[in-house]
């Protein structure tokens, strides 16, 4: 473990990954609590997977037209937001079955990403990094992005906490009290999308859902107030992220799976307790 702390001082990449992880834990914990209690895990999973479309597109266009500013993270963010709005609008307005839309957006996003990556000029794309996470992808810019985006997620949640909770609990009554229920549901999905994109570097798009859902699910077994679930879930996510990074560094194992397995283990233990 001492090696890990030494590496933190000498290897910038490890430091970036840790700081980005700490910042993003704040938004994972808070948004994860909404995902679990509002029961929209599948929407979150669809948003996470479909962000591959944006990653692929960003890689394709940045290479083809030499656009350095167009990063995979940026592409992921745009794709996640688009997916969130599509799923949200259709489930609010159209009479289509929600799970059908979720499945459709999920696969369409991934298919788009894979095709873009296939046609991207230059050397091959390391698909595995995006799917399962690769902390070596974390740059200084990502750390700043994580800090800013987490701050946005936290401030918006603090400002509109009661309205978001009310819309999650009773959409119809909130509408009757003059609240734009649909708008707040979409806002929630947007905040969830931002949080998910922050996870791409750490756990990758496939494992992201675990770190969104498991800490909040564990926290909700011992707390019956949403804000308490949020606080506990942020603390749990911080512990998993820091410990997972350290453990994976020392044992030379991939970070994402280690973090997810720790989270799953603790959740499993929590299930066995009342």
């Amino acid at each position: 473990m001492i090696e890990f702390f030494e590496a933190l001082q000498t290897v910038p990449l490890i430091r970036y990954a840790l700081i980005a992880g700490i910042f993003s834990s704040l938004s994972f914990g808070v948004m994860g609590s909404f995902v679990v209690t509002r029961r929209i895990g599948y929407i979150a999973a669809a948003i996470a997977h479909s962000s591959l479309g944006g990653i692929g597109a960003a890689i394709y266009f940045s290479r083809k037209y030499d656009l350095e500013w167009l990063t995979p993270m940026g592409g992921a963010l745009v794709a996640a937001l688009i997916s969130a709005l599509i799923i949200g609008m259709i489930s609010l307005r159209a009479k289509e079955r929600e799970d059908t839309i979720i499945g459709g957006v999920w696969a369409t996003g991934m298919a788009t990403g894979l095709l873009f990556m296939h046609f991207a000029p230059g050397r091959g794309v390391n698909l595995e990094s995006y799917i399962f996470g690769n902390i070596l992808l974390t740059s200084q810019a990502d750390v700043i992005a994580a800090a800013v985006l987490s701050l946005v997620v936290l401030s918006v949640t603090l400002l509109f906490y009661h309205k978001l909770v009310a819309v999650c609990f009773d959409e119809e009554f909130s509408r009757l009290r003059g609240i734009n229920s649909g708008g707040y549901f979409l806002l929630l999905l947007v905040l969830i999308s931002i949080s998910i994109v922050l996870l791409v570097g750490l756990t990758g798009i496939i494992l992201a859902i675990a770190l969104i859902v498991l800490p909040a699910a564990t926290a909700s077994r011992f707390n019956k107030q949403l804000w308490k679930i949020m606080v506990s879930s942020v603390v749990l996510t911080l512990i998993y992220t820091v410990f997972g990074l350290a453990f994976s560094f020392v044992s030379e194992t991939p970070t994402g799976p280690v973090i997810v397995l720790i989270a799953a283990l603790v959740y499993g233990v929590s299930l066995s307790r009342k």
């Binding site: 309205k163 609990f169 609240i179 909700s220 949403l226 308490k228």
Partner: peptide, 29 residues
């Protein structure tokens, strides 16, 4: 409304729910 339509696992207290009756007066915070 009928109480049966609610997700009973949703983590809110009785007071939280009653406060929802004042939502129209809340801007933020």
């Amino acid at each position: 409304p009928q109480s049966i339509q609610f997700d009973t696992l949703f983590p809110v207290s009785a007071l939280d729910i009653v406060l929802m009756g004042r939502l129209h007066l809340l801007r933020f915070g």
